[in-house]
Design a binder for these strands. Structure first.
Length: 464
RNA sequence: GUCCCGUUCGUCUAGCCAGGCCUAGGACACCGGGUUUUCAUCCCGGCAACAGGGGUUCGAAUCCCCUACGGGACGCCA
């Protein structure tokens, strides 16, 4: 490719299963490269496996890519000059290219399938892997100039299938034909394709086309606890869909995925997408495989959550709270934001938010048994409760704020010759049912005088 | 079995290409301590790695070779 040629990359998923993290990472790196170089990101669907493709899986791919914010410039829905973008609709194009190969004398038929003929000396030998006598070809070595790994030399030694006996073209063939006809300049894909690339290079040569640059990404391995090998759709935490369902921020998932195999080379970790695009370089991608670490993913997610403006945080939280039955449309935006302002820096995930803040919205909240024992178990609990109630009742509605409440506890403490926070744990339990939560005084303020006093009295009543 | 790729703390990584600045830095996790309550925040501290062996060199995590280990591919799957 010439240096002035516009970058064109593609993500070419096959809708034969759930969309998983590995695929998402490949899509992300292609997208980042395209955005970084002001290029074009093409989405092409490799649906040549009629046996296993389903429309549901295809939809999941679209939805997951959209959720991650990986918008494609050409492809299904987006259109483009190189369509159609579903391989199942590109039969004519494949036939035309097959004719080219035929004319070049590189196609032969065997058992109803069409094979690509390698050039070179042939011999038969027993193959330990296939446990059979097979024909091998001494073809010329090809060199893959990989942008991540450097030059990789490989010798292809077996003819391979171009068109199956059922008439469907195979991956190797359509992949190369599409990359040529779609003007793809850089092929960025998983390392599992590295050894396929030599086949592809033979095809480019036979079709008289200049090959694109290649970049083979390290694979994502399973967590050790989940066994050996590359991550598969069946592994815990493997599905993009799962992160969406658990209310992770797409920005965080993107950020984490970018860090899986790529590094900005300084200590930056939490980055917005603009910064990632700006700093992304294929040359800085790791050569060795990475293991998926859910804890780190959670951490990145929390960091992104904390950085959100409260209004945005509230916008993200509302549907989650609603779905959990904690706060519906009837909750005022102002109150919601005041509550969330207290919770945002404390709660590590949106999934945990409803449980954390339910008592702000309902009187019928869950009570923590341990917290009850810890606070009410004390011999002077009733007395403490009475003192708090009396103190807080003396604070007028007009002056009900963290500062005034703090002062009220101060004077109570002074009168009883104790620290103000001697009354806090029990009060917290009385108004929230738990031992932990947002900062105490602001929590009382936001909860409001009415709720606080009602709950204190309710608890006192239940003790009597 | 053959071929290809890889190997820095438990994990993600910086450093390696341009050898000395590395008694190897950061982050997650974990452990300990602290914070006006809170075994979900925050702060401080700690633990912990150059796979092994040769070589080159005044000097190697960094360059070369071998071994071991890990991963991938070897499908009329993609």
């Amino acid at each position: 490719m010439s240096s002035t040629e516009k970058v064109r990359v593609r993500f070419a998923p096959s809708p034969t299963g759930y969309f998983h993290i590995g695929g998402a990472r490949t899509a992300l790196f292609n997208w980042l490269f395209a955005r970084r170089h002001d290029g074009v990101f093409v989405l092409r669907v490799e649906d040549t496996d009629k046996e296993r493709n389903t429309p549901e899986y295809l939809n999941l791919i679209y939805e997951s890519l959209r959720w991650l914010g990986l918008d494609w410039d050409e492809g299904p829905f987006a259109g483009g000059d190189c369509g159609p973008y579903l391989q199942s609709e590109r039969g004519d194009i494949y036939r035309a290219h097959l004719d080219k190969l035929r004319a070049a004398g590189r196609v032969f038929e065997k058992e109803g399938a069409l094979f690509f003929r390698l050039e070179g000396e042939r011999h038969t030998a027993y193959d330990e892997y296939h446990k059979a006598e097979i024909e091998k070809v001494k073809s010329a070595p090809v060199v893959i100039d990989d942008m991540i790994r450097g030059p990789v030399e490989r010798v292809e030694e077996r003819d391979f299938v171009l068109v199956r006996s059922d008439g469907e073209p195979t991956f190797h063939f359509v992949n190369v034909v599409d990359d040529i006809t779609m003007g793809i300049t850089h092929v960025i894909r998983g390392e599992d394709h590295l050894s396929n690339t030599s086949k592809h290079l033979h095809l480019y040569a036979a079709l008289g086309a200049a090959p694109p640059r290649f970049a083979h990404l390290p694979l994502i391995l399973k967590d050790r606890a989940h066994g050996q090998g590359k991550m598969s759709k069946r592994d815990k935490g493997a599905l993009v869909e799962e992160y969406r369902a658990r209310h992770y921020l797409p920005a965080a998932v993107r950020n984490f995925l970018a860090l899986l195999g790529w590094s900005p080379k300084d200590d930056s970790e939490v980055m917005d997408i603009g910064e990632i695009i700006e700093r992304f370089r294929l040359e800085d991608v790791q050569k060795s495989p990475a293991r998926f670490d859910e804890k780190k993913m959670d951490h990145i997610n929390f960091e992104h959550l904390k950085r959100l403006p409260t209004e945005t945080y509230a916008w993200c939280a509302r549907p989650v709270l609603d779905a959990a039955g904690v706060a519906g449309d009837d909750v005022e935006e102002d109150y919601l934001q005041r509550v969330l302002a207290l919770c945002q820096e404390k709660v590590d995930s949106l999934a945990n938010l409803p449980d954390f803040c339910a008592y702000f919205f309902t009187d019928d909240y869950r009570e923590d048994e341990k917290a009850r024992k810890k606070t009410l178990g004390k011999p002077d609990a009733a007395q403490t409760l009475a003192e708090v109630t009396e103190t807080l009742e003396a604070v007028p509605a007009a002056g009900w704020n963290a500062a005034t409440l703090g002062a009220a506890f101060e004077s109570l403490a002074a009168a009883k010759d104790n620290k103000p926070f001697a009354w806090w744990p029990l009060t917290r339990f009385a108004v929230s049912g738990v031992a932990a939560g947002p900062d105490f005084l602001p929590m009382l303020e936001v909860l409001g005088r009415e709720r606080v006093l009602a709950r204190l009295n309710r608890l006192r009543g239940s003790l009597a």
